[in-house]
Design a protein around this nucleic acid. Structure first.
Length: 480
RNA sequence: GGGGCGGUAGUAUAGCCUGGUAGUAUUUCAGGUUUGGGACCUGACGACCGCGGUUCAAAUCCGCGCCGUCCCA
């Protein structure tokens, strides 16, 4: 632990969200730009968090029978081209390998933007009988999608890390039931570990995954008014099964196509969590995901050898919270406070001669900054309570900003104003995709987010764009 | 995809208009004094995004590219 990273964040989150987030990323040593546009370097501070997310989700996946595997990063063009909606959706963003050394390859190879093509080709060989089902496979990997828009670290880049779960079932009913279980597994982790609230909802046909029957996603609201598409569930029906010939003989001896789902969580959600909770002093980490939950800062311990001795004792006693004991002499306590706040350690324990006399310590909670004095003998009992409180506070605060952002209108002018005011707005719309194009043009980039999960009635409601009979209420807003 | 602005040490910047010795702060390293919200002193290391052009001479002017950022599609 050298003396490093000098300066705090100089831009306020409320004033310029993007610039604040980029400073957070760089000054807290989360990530860095690479030499290639749209590709970032995940430094240990960020990658450790990603590992934790992976670990927790993986545990949940195993409970519902999903196994991990690994497929190659390159996919031959001929294989890639089989499902036409999928091809149409992904072709503009595919990076191709055309040469190896000095040899031009006989067939272009796609760097996977997602792995349906290569996985389902194997599935068609592996699945023969109803006894081979369900097939529940997942891989943790990276994908490349050559987005031409301005990249934003974590939120929009050309490479991201994720999981892709691709499952096969005998019946649609079984597929849908299992799909729900996967989404529950995700939600458990995003809520309990990451303290990220979300609204679950179905995408419109225009916004659904290329090749899917329907897509459902969790949606997280960030304080700059943008909605982050979180964990997702694409139900593929039998579309890919037909394109890739994934068939089985059912119990009656008849040949049938499998029913399939796809699920994912990506490093975008890691960015979302960081952006959601962090503040003008730096990262705020939900205690559950924080690798080090406590930092102990002994004060004036050079003169008071007793202080350091006690600090070591406390550190040992609180071992299970993986505390950092900051013994550096070359920097002042104030410097340490700022540095660990930037890095996002949930609780800070201050211990000096004055506290020692009273047999207590000062504990500062990162999210609110509040300080409390706690008797040293009560630490083991009180710290879990403080951590739990902080975890709940982070979730509730984020949930409140999400709820506050939700609103409703049937008037187009008002919709435009509300989107400008960073709201997510429920409006009646018809299913015509042209209306969604108009929506985007008139709200300078607003999109449909998800169809009203509560299915409020739309009888006698007019589409906010074309004025014809509306088909559903749908939430609109801006996204990353 | 179109347009604006920018790129100088690990980081943040001055110098650019008007071409000629790259300055400052912080970081890092060494030594000393310090320690309850970013301490101080001394010394050292460290940079002009890339390629081409103009010129006796380019961080500076011109062109192209790359990277960043904002706006529009």
């Amino acid at each position: 632990m050298g003396k490093k990273n000098q300066e705090g964040i100089t831009i306020k989150k409320e004033e310029n969200f993007t610039e604040w987030f980029i400073q957070l990323m760089q000054k807290a040593e989360l990530a860095e730009y690479s030499k290639v546009s749209g590709f970032i370097i995940y430094r240990p501070a960020a990658y450790t968090l990603w590992e934790k997310i992976k670990e927790e989700i993986d545990k949940e996946f195993k409970k519902i029978g999903i196994q991990n595997c690994y497929f190659p990063v390159l996919i031959p063009e001929s294989l890639f081209q089989k499902e036409k909606d999928f091809v149409k959706g992904f072709s503009p963003e595919v990076a191709w390998v055309t040469e190896a050394g000095n040899t031009k390859l006989p067939e272009r190879l796609a760097f996977r933007p997602t792995s349906e093509a290569i996985m389902y080709d194997s599935y068609s060989k592996w699945i023969r009988s109803w006894r081979d089902l369900p097939l529940l496979l997942n891989q943790w990997n990276n994908v490349i999608r050559w987005d031409t828009n301005n990249p934003v670290p974590f939120f929009r880049g050309r490479e991201f890390l994720w999981n892709e779960t691709h499952t096969c079932f005998e019946t649609e009913k079984k597929a849908l039931e299992h799909g729900k279980k996967v989404m529950q597994a995700y939600s458990k982790v995003t809520k309990n570990l990451m303290a990220v609230p979300a609204i679950y909802g179905k995408k419109t046909d225009k916004e659904k995954f290329a090749g899917a029957i329907f897509s459902e996603k969790n949606h997280t609201y960030l304080q700059n008014g943008k909605v982050l598409e979180n964990t997702c569930f694409h139900h593929d029906g039998q579309k890919f099964a037909k394109a890739y010939d994934v068939k089985f003989k059912n119990k009656e001896g008849k040949e049938q196509f499998v029913w399939q789902n796809t699920h994912a969580i990506s490093t975008r959600e890691l960015g979302g969590m960081l952006a959601l909770h962090s503040d003008n002093k730096g990262i705020v980490l939900p205690p559950q995901i924080a690798p080090n939950k406590i930092v102990i800062i002994p004060v004036r311990f050079e003169q008071e050898k007793k202080v350091l001795k006690k600090a070591k004792e406390i550190s040992k006693a609180l071992n299970k919270f993986n505390p950092i004991l900051d013994k550096r002499l070359e920097v002042t306590p104030g410097y340490k406070f700022n540095e660990w706040e930037l890095k996002g350690i949930p609780l800070r324990i201050e211990l000096g001669p004055r506290d020692l006399e009273k047999q207590e310590v000062i504990i500062a909670k990162r999210n609110t900054g509040e300080k409390v004095a706690i008797k040293i003998k009560d630490l083991k009992k009180e710290i879990p309570k403080l951590l739990e409180k902080m975890q709940t506070e982070l979730y509730e605060t984020a949930k409140k900003s999400l709820e506050n952002a939700k609103t409703k209108t049937e008037n187009k002018k008002e919709l435009i104003k509300l989107i400008q005011k960073q709201k997510i707005v429920m409006v009646p719309m018809c299913k015509n995709p042209t209306c969604e194009d108009h929506l985007k043009a008139e709200t300078s980039g607003g999109k449909t987010l998800f169809i009203d999960p509560e299915n409020n009635p739309v009888k006698n409601k007019k589409c906010i764009i074309c004025n014809k009979q509306a088909d559903y209420w749908v939430y609109c807003g801006k996204t990353y």
